[in-house]
């Protein structure tokens, strides 16, 4: 017993030692180097509600609409109504205390600076920081227009930026869990006879939204291979299967096969052997639409290795596939999965 106590004491001492903080040094360690003004300018892109960081510039609603339809509508819709599960950007007024609140720039966002900052730092999705300052002003102005905050002749600039309050600015308050919830949640818990009777009130199985298990998924994935015509001298099933797994990187934006629809990128059915810019209803960049490229295995391989380098001005937000095997596999997959 005595031995045990000593062990415990040593353990306690060790535990205390292990928590010792890394020491400060008076005047610092002299590590790193001063940042240059140009370097700070390149990275310090943040904007604050009081306008700190906002560059000189301007943009109007009409210019913003053009830019938005061109660069944003594939995900957010022409009027900010959103495609699929991408964020809705307009409307939703009066919905915040309802069963299905719609949290948009107009109905929810408390500060206009947040819109400018976010569009500038992270949009368009897959081509971040590609918009000029004036373009960001214009898109922000269009989003204000879509949310009935301004008329269609409005121009937003660094001069008038702070003049227009957001509708829901007063809708936020500081975390008050400490005073509101904690007193209720600090009581000594009940251990016996805490409820009269307990019944199941809801079951997850009723909704049935849990993803399939790995086994189910593997069985389903086997289907396209059996569907492919084994007599045709097409790519090997192994290559196609490898390509299907590579295609996951593409599936954020592209759909292929029966029922495929345009997303952030065009439908890829029949892409191998097709001229570029032909998917119905998809808004291509002028560069792609006028490229005159015909997609065969060679052009696709070059494009997929370096999308931006291969065709300047095209908007595919993807850095490229590094491995030649992956490229060959994904082309084989598209050939089979996108066959008519």
């Amino acid at each position: 017993m005595k031995k045990l106590l000593i062990c415990t004491a040593i353990l306690a001492a060790t535990a205390a030692l292990a928590q010792e903080s890394a020491p400060s040094r008076e005047g610092g360690y002299g590590l790193g180097r001063p940042a240059l003004t140009e370097e700070i300018a390149a990275w310090d892109i943040d904007i604050r509600p009081d306008g700190l960081g906002l560059p000189v510039g301007s943009g109007d609603v009409w210019t913003g609409e053009e830019l938005f339809v061109d660069q944003c509508s594939a995900c957010h819709g022409d009027f900010g109504e959103a495609v699929g599960r991408w964020p809705i950007l307009a409307g939703g007024f009066g919905s915040l205390d309802q069963e299905d609140p719609v949290k948009t720039v107009g109905s929810y966002w408390p500060y206009l600076s947040t819109v400018w900052d976010y569009v500038h730092r992270a949009m368009p999705y897959g081509n971040a920081q590609s918009l000029t300052d004036d373009e960001v002003y214009a898109i922000t102005a269009y989003l204000m227009y879509l949310n009935n905050m301004v008329d269609d002749d409005f121009e937003l600039s660094n001069e008038n930026f702070l003049e227009i309050p957001m509708p829901n600015e007063a809708g936020f308050f500081m975390d008050d869990r400490d005073t509101v919830e904690l007193p209720e949640f600090m009581a000594e818990p009940c251990m016996t006879g805490c409820a009269e009777g307990v019944e199941i009130t809801m079951r997850a199985a009723v909704l049935d939204v849990t993803p399939e298990t790995a086994t189910d998924a593997a069985e389903e994935q086997a289907e396209p291979e059996t569907a492919a015509d084994p007599a045709a001298s097409g790519p090997s099933p192994e290559l196609v299967a490898a390509g299907e797994s590579v295609f996951r990187q593409c599936s954020s934006c592209h759909q292929i096969g029966e029922g495929a629809r345009n997303g952030a990128g065009p439908v890829l059915n029949g892409i191998v052997g097709m001229a570029a810019g032909q998917a119905e209803g998809f808004r291509y960049s002028p560069a792609m639409a006028q490229s005159g490229i015909v997609w065969d295995e060679a052009t696709l391989a070059e494009f997929l290795a370096d999308p931006r380098g291969y065709l300047r001005g095209n908007r595919m937000g993807f850095g490229g596939l590094r491995s030649e095997e992956d490229i060959a596999a994904v082309i084989a997959y598209m050939q089979v999965a996108g066959a008519p």
Partner: peptide, 24 residues
Amino acid sequence: QPWQHREETSKYTDLLESGDARRF
């Protein structure tokens, strides 16, 4: 001052029944 960026206004705020939202 806090920057009030997208991930601390539009997201990661807790909308309550009243229609007001807790932040931070």
